[in-house]
Write a protein that binds this DNA or RNA. Structure first.
Length: 824
RNA sequence: GCCCAGGUGGCGGAAUGGUAGACGCGGCGGACUUAAAAUCCGCUUCCCGCAAGGGAGUGGGGGUUCAAAUCCCUUCCUGGGCACCA
């Protein structure tokens, strides 16, 4: 603990005692039990579940305290709120820790969960623990396997031999989404490639539907990130003639978004990994091509990306024919063309593509302008011209605007059967195989006779053996476990072998929100009725780091399950709030970085309510910020003032002369505060909601000094303050609720309403400006007319001082705000 | 390189065309105390001024407007995302 602040506040109450007391009461009374038959309208408020890494740290508090406050707020608005918690329990960290420590992932994970469950309770959260889910439990992951089989049956899960991203440190393949700038997202090791048999989910089938983010009330930033990740581009697939090479395939398909430039294609580039490279390469070019391809394949993703400046390639010795103009152009291999995008073959138009331009310059290939820039003098280009223009050197299309040329050439290509319009996506199918131990076994059996056989549903779950060796070898640890691998074929009963890869843990989190509705259901992944009752999630909260992994996968699952007839809605998360992170030393807190701040010491000193509120008060939740405890004492001080304020004996006010102005002022403040706090929490502005409550308590203090009100008015104001505070500080508000003579529980109350008429001001400060500069302020009634306001302003001392001797040219009047006198 | 978010007192931040700096931290002064802590009260953007008051001020420059932290252009800086996608 770094500060002097922590030792200063002396508590007037014992936070730990009252907090523990109420948490026990809430639990024993099952206050937060969520019932499906509750008649109130449902509200599903879901925070992303945590990975059980060890201990709950201050970053977890920052994530879960505001979402708990929101859930409590919705409950007090009259909803039947589902606010569940669970653990994303499979995954690499536990396995890696096990390799180092020898402690089995099952044990470390369950120990961590036990500890974290207690710590999450200690925050004063309203989770219904009867609905907890743990994804590493067979009761959960058997449904991963079941869902996998449904997707498999529907053709949405398939196995393919393909180059995969390989992390040499984690010894497993990675999905595209898990490769960050060529590095493994988990350990920052440069990613290499391996050709392997891998299981994929056909997410690309839903690319277009996933692109439709119009129904989502999500931050624009996340919607843009998903849109860019999917990366739709419309263009034309067109064949180039390679019949001169006597191959069976007479055609050679390229993809372009610029069919208007096809007459400028002066060469064609093929990706080094492309299977046709081998067949096309001329004998005399073989050595050079093989050397180039070998070098390209050995490169890590990072090295390949870093070649951005220098584009390299080699000539294959082969040629193809551009069917539009009959031109014979050379075919080159270059690693700036990716096998994984489009067809892996590109028609190069150096005049109108900067990459092709640079490549052409380097290898002295011809550059032919076919879309003339406006006012082009016919001279050489210094860089590729990417804009629109007029078709030139384009045969029958010369003279057309290129935008029209684009359509007419595409029509021409389609009419001749050379190609067709199509759409390409940057999105790749989701690679879900992992060569690791601590995950869901993929329920497939390989039989020499029957081939790929799904494990029959009645044999699920395929249990993860607890006695496997999990040292990393590059093969799945399960492959070494004879008892697991060797199995009878479910079809023909001959000896067969199990699939030994496990699933990406993002499979678990792609449907966990469905399981919370019926966490103990044993006839399927979820009870269809319950799932329908609670879903979709009304409000999801979590960090931006999941913008293109979890959030995209979960949307895909929802759509796929809908098409399988298991769900009847299209989107899993209607509203998403993307919170910021508490960082320490400008890095996100995590156990692996060793920069975690433990909340325990703070909690033991100032209590959970103060820590919750302090984190919410730091700033806007979506902004996050560097951890500092410098202000936590201020929150503790305020909580103590609330404690004292709420318990004053208001009878001291009775019998004194009453002041109608004071009463009205207080009632107005009460109603304004309710309005502010409610609208702030609705908009996730917990910081200003707390500021409004602080102002309110300051006002109450002044009212107390001023007297003039009776105990009824005072007690009413205190009651409303406690109700507004309850979502954010659940313990102290419960205790004070009881101490002010109310029946258990404050968390079963509804939020106070505000009356706009009572919140309305009677007077306001009329601002007097001269030439836009503040010169006076005058208290005036809200009923003031425009003429009166103008006169009051013109006659004010502040204005007079600055307009004397000048001519008043204009007077601007803004009702309820100001008068601006324009004078010169 | 492209896209997004942001830049406001000593600090966290408030204000989304109309009183810049709410609320809190820190600091200063005072009350209480033998003293300290805690607590309570007051002050606290900067500059000039004893004061009244005046001037400057929301990264920099320019613009629109009676009026700009807020809108527009431009530029710098910070954070995040994407990046040979044909």
């Amino acid at each position: 603990m770094s500060t002097t602040a922590m030792r200063t506040t002396e508590f007037r109450y014992r936070p730990n005692e009252i907090e523990a007391k109420w948490r026990e009461r809430w639990a024993s009374d099952k206050l937060y039990e969520v019932r499906d038959d509750d008649p109130r309208p449902k509200w599903y408020e879901l925070p992303m579940y945590p990975y059980p890494s060890g201990d709950i740290h201050i970053g977890h508090w920052y994530m879960y305290a505001p979402s708990d406050a929101r859930a409590r707020f919705m409950r007090m608005k009259g909803y039947n709120v589902l606010h569940p918690m669970g653990f994303d329990a499979f995954g690499l960290p536990a396995e890696n820790a096990a390799i180092r420590s020898g402690i089995h992932p099952l044990k470390s994970t369950m120990d961590n969960i036990d500890r974290m469950r207690g710590q999450l309770r200690a925050m004063g959260t309203m989770y219904d623990w009867d609905r907890e889910i743990v994804t590493s439990a067979p009761e959960y992951y058997r449904w991963n396997q079941w869902l996998f089989l449904q997707l498999h049956k529907a053709g949405l899960a398939y196995r393919a031999y393909a180059p995969a991203n390989w992390c040499p440190s984690c010894n497993t393949v990675l999905a595209n989404e898990q490769v960050i700038e060529g590095l493994c997202e988990r350990c920052d090791t440069p990613v290499t490639h391996r050709d392997m048999n891998q299981w994929f989910f056909r997410i690309t089938k839903y690319a277009d539907e996933l692109l439709d983010v119009s129904k989502l009330e999500w931050p624009e930033k996340i919607r843009i990130m998903q849109t860019n990740w999917i990366g739709r581009s419309a263009g034309v697939e067109i064949e180039f003639d390679i019949s001169e090479h006597g191959l069976e395939d007479k055609a050679f398909t390229t993809f372009t978004t610029r069919i208007d430039t096809i007459y400028g294609a002066t060469f064609v580039v093929i990706a080094p990994e492309h299977p046709l490279v081998e067949k096309l390469t001329a004998p005399e070019r073989r050595d050079e091509v093989n050397a180039y391809v070998g070098q390209a394949r050995r490169q890590t993703e990072v090295e390949r990306l870093s070649t951005e400046k220098e584009k390299t390639g080699v000539f294959t010795g082969a040629y193809c024919v551009n069917r539009l103009n009959g031109e014979r152009v050379p075919i080159l291999v270059a690693d700036y063309v990716l096998l994984t995008y489009g067809t892996g073959v590109v028609m190069a138009v150096p005049a109108h593509d900067q990459r092709d331009f640079e490549f052409a310059e380097r290898y002295a290939l011809p550059i032919k302008v076919v879309v003339a820039p406006p006012e082009w003098d016919g001279g050489e280009l210094k860089e590729a011209y990417l804009g629109e223009g007029t078709q030139v050197n384009s045969g029958q299309f010369d003279g057309l605007p290129s935008s029209e040329g684009m359509e007419r050439i595409a029509d021409h290509v389609e009419a001749n059967g050379w190609g067709h319009r199509t759409v390409n996506y940057r999105l790749r199918d989701w690679l879900i195989s992992r060569q690791r131990y601590w995950g869901t076994p993929i329920p497939i059996i390989y039989c020499d006779e029957c081939g790929e056989v799904p494990v029959p549903q009645e044999d699920l779950p395929v249990l993860l053996p607890e006695d496997a060796e999990f040292l990393p070898t590059g093969d799945s640890p399960l492959a070494l476990h004879e008892g697991f691998v060797n199995v009878e074929c479910p079809n023909c009963s001959r000896p067969a072998r199990r699939e030994t890869d496990t699933m990406d843990t993002f499979v678990d989190s792609s449907w966990y929100f469905l399981r919370y509705a019926s966490p103990q259901y044993s006839d399927g992944p979820f009870d269809p009725q319950a799932a329908k009752q609670w879903n979709p999630v009304d409000q999801y909260t979590g960090g931006v780091e999941h913008a293109v992994m979890h959030l995209l996968y979960a949307r895909f699952f929802t759509k796929a399950l809908r098409d399988l007839g298991l769900l009847d809605f299209d989107e899993p998360f209607i509203r998403l709030f993307s919170q910021g992170h508490i960082i320490a030393g400008s890095q996100k807190m995590s156990k692996s970085r060793g920069n975690v701040v433990a909340p325990d010491e703070y909690v033991s000193k100032v209590g959970a309510d103060v820590v919750r509120c302090y984190l919410m008060f730091l700033g806007p939740w979506d902004q996050g910020g560097e951890w500092s405890d410098s202000g936590i004492n201020g929150m503790a001080r305020w909580m103590n003032r609330v404690w004292e304020l709420a318990q004053r004996d208001a009878r001291a006010l009775d019998g004194l002369p009453q002041d109608t102005d004071a009463l009205r002022d207080m009632s107005r403040t009460v109603h304004k505060t309710i309005r502010r706090v409610v609208s702030d929490i609705e908009r996730f502005k917990f910081n200003t909601a707390l500021a409004a409550l602080m102002e309110f308590s300051n006002t109450l203090n002044r009212v107390w000094e001023r007297k003039g009100i009776d105990s009824g008015g005072w007690n009413d104001a205190v009651e409303k303050m406690l109700l507004l505070l309850a979502p954010m500080a659940p313990h102290i508000s419960e205790e004070l609720w009881e101490r002010t003579g109310h029946a258990f529980s404050i968390h079963d109350q509804t939020l106070p309403q505000w009356d706009p008429a009572l919140a309305a001001d009677e007077v306001f400060t009329l601002v007097v400006q001269v030439n836009g500069r503040l010169r006076d302020r005058i208290e005036v009634p809200v009923s003031i007319t425009e003429e009166e306001a103008r006169n009051v302003a013109l006659e004010s001392a502040g204005a007079q001082q600055h307009i004397s001797g000048k001519a008043v040219a204009r007077v601007i009047y803004v009702p309820g705000k100001l008068v601006n006198i324009v004078a010169s």
